[in-house]
Design a protein around this nucleic acid. Structure first.
Lengths: 334, 334
DNA sequence: ATTAATAGTTAAAGCGTTTTAATTTTTAGG
DNA sequence: CCTAAAAATTAAAACGCTTTAACTATTAAT
């Protein structure tokens, strides 16, 4: 039933290798022969068999993407960007989630590559999941890290400069004249979170401001975390002038709490988030934030991976992208 | 370099077919021989080659998922659910986005199947994209439709009853004593949107309420759409008592506008959304909504697809799941 | 013990491509 | 025109696995 390359060859009156050649542009084929082949393919509605092709060529035309979850727009955006970039390069994307370090009941996404289902993998994972990354490395399987440095492993990666983002966000707040600037951090298992915190601290230091431990809360990248952090400060009479939240979810929680406690934003409290959540520009007050270049992240990620695959990149280069502060209504107008 | 089944066979002192058998549990193998094989695999760190396996078996162990985009939590949840369900069945998921009907510059996701990269496809797409679905059908390629009926094509599908959801949401509002109940619809290209609207209308009719065209606005599943719809009613002096929004984004827009115009929720206006957006339960007032069983949708979707693949399901069955109204703070307490 | 049935094993063919090396055809140079 | 070089085509091997059919070893029934 399925038509194969022999059927096409027969119909075109040529050999299979000529057909294969026009399929791959691998070598020159006399033009009128190429036409014959193309016509035969058209008429037979021929589609090459990916498995056979993989087996012969030793590659799959697919790349893998491992994400922890997809419960927030940043992850969605990364996924979307990666898919677009991959498809633009003619590759398909197999997506796997690895919520926990170990996943009882599920085949480890690692089998994804060990079985040669994909040519390489993009990994965006919390630092804790280092084991399987180390395994990948040991096996020499091509991969690149997305948005996370893993201290224990030297690997090609593309990241967004979280230190810079944290620094810039804080610097803007300082420039607006605030002294009591709080930070609500994300989750310890993400290196990005730690780096935003470091950026915050450094900005404070650089501008002669004290780092007050009581103004650093932990929010776990959640609305509830943001809400509780602000509520805590209010209850303890420690309301800051401004807060830099580790992500927009947290910031929304802060705004929500501010509303509850009748604290006016930005008059009494400024807020700046991180990620440029789509809601940020739509809801009122519009949220000031730090925008990450997710399309670029995806694009550079797949390009780097492709370069690793082609052998163009051999060392553990790391590409660092810059995020961009976007000031809207939760920070004072200039 | 890569170790294959012959290496394993040699090391185990058995034939390749015995090795293949322990790999596939396809036939009985004497236990001590199975142990020998397992041991050899272990020692050689053998991993089967997926391409060779596909070629020989005629299947791939992968399923495809086509989504229009992933810019909203509903899509993310479906993706997540499908991935989990697929992996549970030992299948990997290749994800492709098909934002427009035609995609210049990208390989059509249809090649995904025409090239036999996957065994079957789950499609969640706006009604407009019927062409490629028809093509799939013509080619006899296995697929199941997710969350959308396509009037022009008879196909196995699993959907959530949007009519029912719209009906129930509206009925709750009616039960709360409201007469002027507005609806902000979604996007015409989604059949789900039309069905929620129908449910709304039918509930009104069934309870002897008039369908007022001026209380039906179009919101395009966006915050801005919800905002503008409510703003419009307010400006025209047509403020309804309650609004059923086609999705939570729209509902958030309504809440945002209500805040702007100092309309108290739920005292002066009740709101009920659709989708159970994660923000709905976190922000204040907590949003009443209609929760769709996305995990179930994903699970049933892959199960149905698998049954189509195995030939268990031959006809165009459709499985309909029920959504569930979740009343929170934007509707009157009982 | 002998035979029939069953379990376990293997040799060989096949899955649909690409690739290498060999062969034929075309082009260019004298 | 003839020959050498270049271009186009092909036959055959390879990719790593599964499957079928044939064969051998084991068990059960008489």
């Amino acid at each position: 039933m399925p038509v194969n390359i022999y059927d096409v060859a027969k119909k075109a009156g040529l050999s299979v290798v000529t057909v294969s050649r026009v399929l791959n542009n691998s070598s020159t084929v006399r033009d009128y022969n190429r036409q014959k082949v193309l016509k035969a393919m058209e008429e037979l509605d021929y589609k090459p068999n990916a498995a056979a092709r993989s087996l012969a060529k030793g590659d799959t035309g697919m790349i893998g993407l491992i994400l922890p979850t997809i419960d927030d727009p940043f992850m969605s955006q990364v996924l979307f960007a990666v898919e677009r970039a991959a498809r633009e390069k003619g590759m398909f994307l197999v997506t796997a989630f690895a919520p926990g370090c170990e996943e009882p009941g599920y085949a480890n996404p690692v089998s994804l590559f060990r079985e040669n289902r994909v040519d390489g993998i993009l990994i965006l994972s919390p630092v804790k999941n280092e084991e399987y990354i180390l395994e990948l490395k040991k096996n020499g399987f091509p991969f690149v890290l997305l948005d996370q440095h893993h201290s224990a492993v030297q690997a090609p990666s593309v990241t967004v400069d979280n230190f810079y983002g944290g620094y810039q966000a804080t610097a803007r707040l300082i420039a607006a004249g605030f002294k009591r600037i709080a930070h609500i951090s994300g989750s310890d298992i993400y290196e990005s979170s730690a780096q935003r915190l470091e950026g915050y601290k450094q900005a404070l230091r650089d501008h002669g401001l004290e780092i007050a431990e009581e103004l650093i809360a932990s929010g776990n990248f959640t609305i509830a975390g943001g809400y509780e952090a602000l509520a805590g400060w209010i209850e303890r009479g420690q309301l800051p002038e401004a807060v830099f939240a580790a992500d927009d979810n947290t910031a929304f929680g802060v705004i929500d709490a501010a509303r509850k406690f009748r604290i006016s934003i930005p008059a009494e409290l400024s807020v700046i988030g991180y990620d440029d959540h789509p809601f940020g520009s739509m809801l009122h007050p519009a949220l000031s934030t730090v925008r990450q270049p997710t399309p670029e992240l995806g694009k550079q990620g797949v390009e780097l991976l492709l370069n690793v695959l082609s052998g163009k990149v051999k060392r553990a280069v790391t590409i660092t992208l810059k995020p961009e502060v976007v000031l809207r209504d939760t920070t004072p107008a200039k």
